[in-house]
Each structure stands twice: as C-alpha cells, then as structure tokens.
C-alpha cells in the first residue's frame, strides 16, 4: 500500500518499467538520425526528457531524482548551450561563424553532413534538460500548494 501512495498504480508502474528504456532509446535514435530523417535535436530532446518525466509521473519525484536531479539537469542545459556556441565559433577559424568545416561525407549515411549531428546533440542536451526542469518546477509548485492546505 505504501508503494502505491508514492506514485500511480502497479499497472502503470510495470508498463513504465518496461517502456521507459525504449522511450529513451527512441529519443537518442531521433537525435542521432536528425540530419537524415525527420526529427533532430529538439524533437529527440523532448522525447529524452519525456522518459524521465514518465518515471516521475509513475513513481513519484523521489525516484526520478535518483536518475536525474535538478542540479544535473541544469548542468546539462548550460553545457548544451556552451557546446553549441563553441561549435559555431569554431567556424570562425575557417572564415565564417557557423561554418560547417567538417567533411560532409556521403549523403544519407549516419556519419555525414559535418557538424549538423553535433549541433543536434547539443540542442538535445539543452531541450531535454530544459523541459525536465520545467516539469519539475511545475510539480514542485503543485506540492507546495497541497502542503498549504494541510
């Protein structure tokens, strides 16, 4: 009974336990293939964030914080933006800001199109961590309101 109070029902928890890894993997797939198929850093980042939010909804925020807490998320958010700006600045060495100076490779292959996949990864850090923090903050506000009623 105590376990049930902390999150949702046993059915939701079991399904979550089975699917959450797949959701995370799918997010990573979307990010990694962003330059050759629909999707990319933003969409993949949202899916990655959803996998953590899923844990939070099903098991309660304590369990989710064991996997990813606010400090770590905040770190990833900042580091994503810094990676993005650094990559854009590296282009200046080749003559232009945002210049795609790596080898473009063969089209429609996973390792192609130069810097674009790296930009996607940086964006996925930023978006994933940012969205996770937004949901955490919304949850925290909800909890303080309930506490006030008590």
């Amino acid at each position: 009974m105590k376990e049930q109070q902390k999150g949702m029902t046993i059915i939701v928890k079991t399904i979550t336990r089975l699917t959450v890894g797949l959701i995370l993997l799918f997010g990573i797939y979307i990010v990694a293939n962003g330059h050759i198929s629909p999707g990319g850093g933003f969409a993949g980042g949202v899916i990655i964030a959803l996998s953590f939010i899923h844990i939070m909804l099903a098991f309660g925020k304590e369990d989710a914080f064991k996997k990813m807490n606010q400090g770590v998320a905040s770190f990833f958010e900042s580091i994503g933006a810094i990676i993005f700006i650094t990559l854009a600045n590296l282009g200046i060495a080749g003559g232009y800001f945002f210049l795609n100076f790596l080898s473009k490779g063969e089209p429609f292959k996973l390792f192609s199109s130069g810097l674009i996949p790296l930009y996607n990864i940086a964006i996925s850090f930023k978006v994933g961590a940012g969205l996770f923090i937004i949901v955490v903050i919304l949850m925290l506000f909800k909890i303080t309101k309930e506490d006030e009623k008590k």
Binding site: F75, S78, A88
Partner: peptide, 18 residues
C-alpha cells in the same frame, strides 16, 4: 566583429549559469 555582438553575451550568460 559582427557575430561577436551576439556570441559574447550568449557565451557569458551560459558560463554564468554553469
């Protein structure tokens, strides 16, 4: 110089948060 006007404050902002 032109992109620097955007890059410097953006970079400084995220370094600050880190």
């Amino acid at each position: 110089l032109l992109p620097l006007f955007v890059v410097i404050p953006l970079g400084a902002a995220f370094l600050n948060s880190l």
